[in-house]
Write a protein that binds this DNA or RNA. Structure first.
Lengths: 213, 213, 213, 213
DNA sequence: TATGAATGAGACTTCATTCAT
DNA sequence: AATGAATGAAGTCTCATTCAT
């Protein structure tokens, strides 16, 4: 294959190779799934040959696993963002969900990892564990903590504590799944939905003098 | 292969064959995805051979498409159930969502169709269209109608009309996706979550004298 | 591939396939060694394709092992022949060695198995065990028994008992190795050598009248 | 790769490289055969890389051929040793066979060259010629000369002259092949066998007093 | 109708060889 | 001189599809 950039030194190229390959692998696996992706397709994306891919990753399986690991890790760290939230529990929940939306439903990479988790979970259970540990668990844990705090402080209804975290998180999945299914064919305003969801759920969550619907 | 049931006549068997095969195909495709499923795996499930499958379906692709079509169609018809709802808009929405939950998130078959839509959508866009037409569109359309009616009648907040249908449907996606990802490994009480979700969103949706949180 | 014989029924063909393939595998492996033989070469010999070979043998390794096993087993059974020997110990030893010569050094198949044992013994230790069990052990065991008997009866020298079996068997290895190395390029009269060897070992090279050399 | 010996000068190292490589190649080819040996395996033995091997040998084939040539040549020169034999023909034959045993059956390197000759003879006929020219031909030629001389002088039987050289040499092949096949798994006392063989061939297995068997 | 032997295209993986550094 | 990244031909094995029985 032809040299793309003359300036890049061999050492630099070599240092970047694994990440480049992982990146290309992400694109291919996300687009076609594990089984339907050929190692050569991954290589072609970079203008290299399949042999070169095998220089860095011993098998297609490992390539997939490393790709998933890297893609999960390269995304913005939720925990950090979660730590910087301020305000009332309601405020913090809103902030948390918006962060979570941005990193999970609105971020193409994370969205595709969700697809891969669903599609390849049988063959790669660790991928699902990764996804859970990186995206789902932190959000739910933080939501649970905030909801409990809100209940304790009397800010939230007592009875809602049990399922509120799942309820709160659901619009994020909704938007993510929608986009995975319909790509650009049926566009939705994800942020507006998530905000409306927060708004509506919060109205219900917050203690009120009046009675229910 | 040995005859499984002696009583079934040849003609009966023959008449059922296509459906049996589609059923077996569903199981295999759901478990392994399109590319990783072998036509022989499908046949083995029925104790027949590859060749017989090709007697009824010309290619693996067609087998997948027919399987998807049949699996979508065999499920309970949402529209009928929707038509039988009675009561206030809130009541009918609650009823609708519970029906939708049962047929979408709580029904293994429909859940796996969601997985396949996400996993194979690139290769089989019609599958996605099917899924949308059969499960998503009817629910959203009915929700939209009910919300609009509720807004008109003053039962619901005006401003929430725009995104309420998506918000209301979210927990169903949430539960469906959760179960697809974690199977039995992280069980959730789907119905309770959906009900809590309805409860909380309704509290927010319903017109109230008091102010917001 | 074209049908070679119209008369052969499918079932007959199928029944013979494994042995045919093993036979072809023997020829290829013997000629080129394990690593240098392609499964396709084996198939081509029969006018079939590699896929067919994999219908009967799961891997090239198994093909080799089965081939070796079959080739060892298909050869004439030494033990039977050994049992039918009659006469003095010397007569029986002569008879035994001639049988052994015929089946080991003079039989192309067995000879090639010796080559494969030597060439592929590292990768296939069971092959060596097979060869030993089928060709070497029976001959040496019978020789040992006959020599012991001859020593007991006073027919043979006492002091020679220890190594006589190995000494007696030597010329067979000699002829076998020679033919493996030089094929037709340096022909030898194997039988004459083995007979001369028997003769000399029995009676001695040195002139009879006087004392030893 | 790290420098193995600090004291060795660059020039010295360079001068030795070809031989080092051939030595490493010998070990690898002997252990795995030509086709199963990777050039990189050879390099690794020396702590160098593939590329370096190609600096000295243009192809794997040439590497094998040069290795075989060098390994054959590096062994003790039979002809010299043969020339220094003294005594009766029987004595000289005994001496010759013991020398031949030491250099052929008892010397690991020569033994492995025999294996390679048998295993790779098809692909490398020159290897076989080398082996013959270096180890077999000199021994047989000397044996032939000695036997002829012994027959002429009346020391040996007339009738045995024709095949005696082959007969005399056979125990050496026997021991060599045995060791190649069974390595340490079935140890034999090679020298004792060769000596017993010489003894028996010279004097005969059969008791001396009477006539032949 | 059903079988399953056979095919052959195609995918993964290996490795001899090259060559820029 | 030495490296080792890169190539690409080649080999093992799989599997959708065909077709004679």
């Amino acid at each position: 294959m032809k040299r793309v950039e003359k300036k890049t030194s061999r050492a630099e190229r070599k240092a970047r190779r694994p990440d480049e390959i992982l990146e290309a692998a992400f694109e291919e696996f996300a687009a076609k799934g594990y089984a339907a992706t050929r190692v050569e397709d991954v290589a072609s994306r970079l203008g290299i040959t399949k042999g070169t891919v095998y220089l860095y990753f011993p098998t297609k399986e490992v390539l997939f696993q490393e790709m998933f690991r890297q893609a999960s890790t390269s995304s913005a760290d939720l925990s950090t963002a979660i730590g910087s939230l301020r305000g009332s529990c309601a405020d913090r929940i809103r902030g948390l969900l918006l962060i979570s939306y941005e990193s999970t439903a609105n971020d193409r990479k994370t969205r595709e990892l969700l697809r891969l988790s669903l599609a390849e979970g049988t063959r790669f259970p660790e991928a699902v564990d990764f996804y859970h540990g990186k995206f789902i668990a932190p959000t739910l844990a933080a939501l649970t903590a905030l909801v409990e705090q809100g209940v304790k402080s009397g800010e939230f209804r007592q009875d809602a504590a049990a399922h509120a975290p799942d309820v709160l998180a659901s619009s994020i999945f909704h938007v993510a799944v929608w986009r995975l299914m319909f790509a650009g064919r049926k566009p939705i305003d994800g942020k507006a939905i998530v905000e409306a969801h927060i708004d509506l759920v919060m109205s219900g969550l917050v203690q009120r003098s009046g009675r229910r619907y």
